[in-house]
């Protein structure tokens, strides 16, 4: 049996979906964040694979930028979680539900 690079893409799709489902079913804000990171990583895997399929380095460059942006996002996001936790003593996203109808 031979495998083609498309299998990386299928794996990326699977990881992405798992991340998305994780966002939907977990309540701990930090775990939620990890799921988002997983989704970003799945995207990165797809980008790297595309780079390989197309034979150019642009995909890797974009994956690199995604990493940088993800790092920035994590920093800000975790700071937000920290400040929410400080005021509400809770890291559950369901507890921050005042902004509603």
């Amino acid at each position: 049996m031979t495998l083609t690079p498309e299998w990386y893409l299928l794996l990326a799709a699977a990881l992405f979906t798992i991340g998305a489902v994780g966002v939907l079913i977990r309540r701990n804000a930090i775990v939620l964040f990890m799921c988002v990171e997983l989704m970003l990583n799945a995207a990165n895997l797809a980008l790297v694979t595309f780079s390989r399929i197309n034979g150019t380095l642009d995909g890797q460059i974009i994956a690199f930028f995604v990493m940088v942006v993800a790092a920035a996002e994590v920093v800000v996001g975790l700071a937000i979680i920290m400040s929410i936790f400080r005021t509400r003593r809770s890291a559950s996203v369901d507890d921050s539900n005042l902004l509603k109808y």
């Binding site: 998305a20 966002v23 939907l24 079913i25 309540r27 996203v93 369901d94 921050s96 539900n97 005042l98 902004l99 509603k100 109808y101």
Partner: peptide, 12 residues
């Protein structure tokens, strides 16, 4: 507006 539950996960 009942859809605006305030739960982030519903929006997600």
């Amino acid at each position: 507006r009942r859809l605006q539950t305030g739960f982030v996960r519903s929006y997600a």
